[in-house]
Amino acid sequence: MKRVRCPKCDEFITFDETKYQEGQALVFVCPQCGKQFGIRIGKSKLRNIQKEENPDENADENGYGSIIVIENVFHYKQVIPLKWGDNIIGRYMKGSKANTPIETNDPSIDNNHCVINVSKDKNGNLKYTLRDGPSNTGTFVDNMILGDRERRIIYDGTLFTIGATSIILRAANSEE
């Protein structure tokens, strides 16, 4: 099964791609907003930047770890790699400052909700520091809301929540 996103309201439409041939054009009508749009079956030019349908939870393509966005009613499970420095986490929107965007329809996630800073501690090990954006709904770690200027060191397996979305930090392997 494949998913396409409505260009107007971002609603996902699922269809069985095995019923169609490569190069075939399809037209969809969004059940949410009524927008009519077309796609062409085949290899997407954007596929290399899109998330995989069944992401590998241990993926660590940059060597700095990743975050695992847990599937809920707003979105599918996503594994998003982290980079060195500030990783601005927020809802995906064209033109947003978020460099670690989550593809979601969760209205309680801001465009720039929180930040994970990846740096090294005095022993040369990777250190992950979480802080709120500031956001409208807050960032929660262990069911405790982060204060306005509060920074929290988080570790592999730490569960934090933004809006109605739970995220797990998957730290990079410390063996170098």
Rank of each mutant, 00 (worst) to 15 (best):
Q78P: 07
D156E: 06
D10F: 08
P81W: 04
I89L: 03
G163R: 04
N112D: 09
N125H: 05
G42H: 13
G65T: 06
L26C: 11
T104E: 02
L82M: 05
N117G: 07
G85V: 13
S44M: 01
N105G: 07
G23K: 13
D16P: 01
G157A: 13
V29H: 01
R91C: 01
R151D: 10
R151C: 13
N48Q: 04
G42R: 12
E176A: 15
I167N: 00
D142E: 04
Y92F: 15
S108M: 04
L46N: 11
E17L: 07
E103W: 01
D110E: 06
M144G: 00
G34D: 08
N58Q: 08
Y92E: 15
A59D: 08
A172I: 07
R170E: 02
E71W: 09
G124R: 03
S108K: 05
L169T: 01
R47C: 08
T161M: 07
Y155P: 00
K19Y: 03
P55W: 01
T100R: 05
I80L: 15
I168M: 11
R91Q: 06
F28S: 02
Y64S: 05
K77V: 00
N99L: 10
N123S: 09
L46F: 10
V4D: 12
R40N: 12
S119W: 04
A164C: 09
P7I: 14
N173H: 12
V69T: 06
N54H: 15
Y92R: 14
I39A: 13
T158C: 04
E57H: 15
I89R: 02
M1P: 11
N112G: 00
T139I: 00
G133Q: 02
Q32L: 06
V27P: 01
D86I: 05
N105T: 10
I68D: 03
N173R: 11
